[in-house]
Amino acid sequence: MNQGKAENALRKLHSLSGVIPLGVFLMVHMLVNYSATGGEEAYNFAAGIMANLPFRYFLETFVIFVPLLFHAVYGVYVALKAKQNVLKYGYFRNWGFFFQRVTGFIAFAFVIWHIWDTRVQAALGAEPNFEMMAALVTDPLTLGLYLVGVVCVLFHFANGLWTLLITWGITVTPKSQKFTQYALMLFFIGFSALGVQALFAFAQ
């Protein structure tokens, strides 16, 4: 009776961890980034609040790094078990299934690179502020890769939220799934616009 029960729980947790806490953190992160459109001072103030939260290392570990590692590693394991057939069955949702996995891999690589660029450098003594990001994205290649990375992460989150609503049994009928699909597409476009504007604000 106990055989494989862990898999059921792990798959549900994998789905959940992408939204709580990772998705929630992502939205806060995107809003902090967006404050860069208000200038250097506004960004440093918003980022400073995040950086100066009490129990920062605890929060970082259990709200970001542990769920992130679990979500990423288990996600790769799950994605590699699929046999992609989008060229044979070109239905809209099958493209969603395909891009969810593609953007997952891109997000994995991007997040590692981004953590190296920012969090690791900060740990090594660099000051994590507006200037740090501005210095990174003055390179057009880095800016381009960051744009791709941010849009992929946001697609992965929006589409993953759509599947979470199914995986946890919240949206059951095709009608409700259609509605959340459109709503989350708008959410993806909106947050992508914020993310792109923020990056250009640093690049200026």
Partner: peptide, 17 residues
């Protein structure tokens, strides 16, 4: 709810098509 059960669904929704 065991291994290979419902949580192995990836929501590609090809089945219903």
């Amino acid at each position: 709810m065991k291994s290979g059960g419902i949580t192995s669904c990836g929501n590609s929704q090809n089945c219903v098509e």
